[in-house]
């Protein structure tokens, strides 16, 4: 190549790289997923430690991830007539509402957790994803139909041991909230789940695109999401 062309190509190339770096840096701070930087962007949707853990649930909380999918979903299906069914991982219904049913559930749950294969790797992060009250769906239950279903723990035995379990809340047939009930991913990848949950609400429960850098967490999340959606 002649020198003039070389200089030209080099400067154009460096220019393009610089511009794309700037755009990339901006978008990383803004919309797209970035490891670690996430807690700020997704703070609101970040499931906080459950308010719901009353006396009954705290007794059950010894069994770690407080809900195990199949059991709860069964119980909800039996109560499907009710507009706002309650599950442990459930938001809206005032926690006082059905103490009895809750109790029923918790007992069921404990039995089931005994039998079902609870996530073995003693997740260190589950604390952040305990059963939670929902942020947005504090909508009045009577007028609209709000249904929350919790899927099974999804663990595809990938090499990192990532797994997830989510509960999905639908109001009038539209997904209004997705909560991560229990999950595991190595250190900083854990922060992908809340973000994935946001994406899932946006996608109305459809599988979300894998996050760059969090392939396995995304896979686990999508599996769990599919499981929860199939319960409706």
């Amino acid at each position: 190549m002649r020198n003039t062309t070389k200089t030209f190509v080099a400067s154009v190339g460096m220019g393009i790289c610089a511009i794309s770096y700037a755009i990339g840096a901006n978008s990383a701070a803004g919309t797209s997923f970035s490891l670690g930087a996430l807690n700020t962007t997704s703070g609101s949707a970040n499931p906080t430690v459950g308010v719901d853990t009353g006396a009954s649930s705290s007794s059950s909380s010894s069994a770690q991830p407080s809900s195990s999918g199949s059991a709860t979903s069964k119980s909800t299906s039996s109560q499907s007539a009710k507009p706002s069914t309650s599950s442990t991982a459930k938001p809206s219904s005032s926690s006082t509402a059905s103490a009895a049913s809750k109790k029923k559930k918790t007992t069921k749950k404990t039995t089931s957790t005994g039998s079902s294969s609870a996530p073995t790797p003693a997740p260190t992060h589950t604390s952040s994803s305990a059963p939670t009250p929902k942020p947005s769906t504090s909508t009045p239950p009577p007028s609209s139909t709000t249904v929350t279903k919790t899927g099974a723990v999804f663990n595809d035995n990938d090499r990192w041991g990532d797994y997830a379990q989510v509960s999905v809340t639908k109001t009038n047939g539209k997904v209004t909230a997705v909560n991560v009930v229990s999950s595991y991913a190595t250190s900083q990848w854990q922060s992908a789940y809340p973000y994935l949950a946001q994406l899932a609400v946006a996608s109305n429960g459809a599988p979300v695109a894998a996050l760059s850098g969090a392939t396995y967490a995304s896979a686990a999340f999508n599996g769990a999401l599919a499981s929860a959606m199939s319960k409706f």
């Binding site: 190549m1 002649r2 062309t5 030209f8 190509v9 080099a10 154009v12 190339g13 393009i16 790289c17 511009i19 794309s20 770096y21 755009i23 990339g24 840096a25 901006n26 978008s27 990383a28 701070a29 797209s32 970035s34 490891l35 670690g36 930087a37 760059s212 850098g213």
Partner: peptide
């Protein structure tokens, strides 16, 4: 020579394109 320049520029720009797609994802900023 112009043809050669063009082909070489294309080759280099493909590398630039790859790098800039990488940067556009904000991978370096992270």
């Amino acid at each position: 020579q112009r043809g050669q320049d063009f082909v070489e520029a294309l080759a280099w720009l493909s590398v630039v394109a790859v790098v800039s797609m990488f940067l556009l994802d904000g991978n370096l900023a992270q």
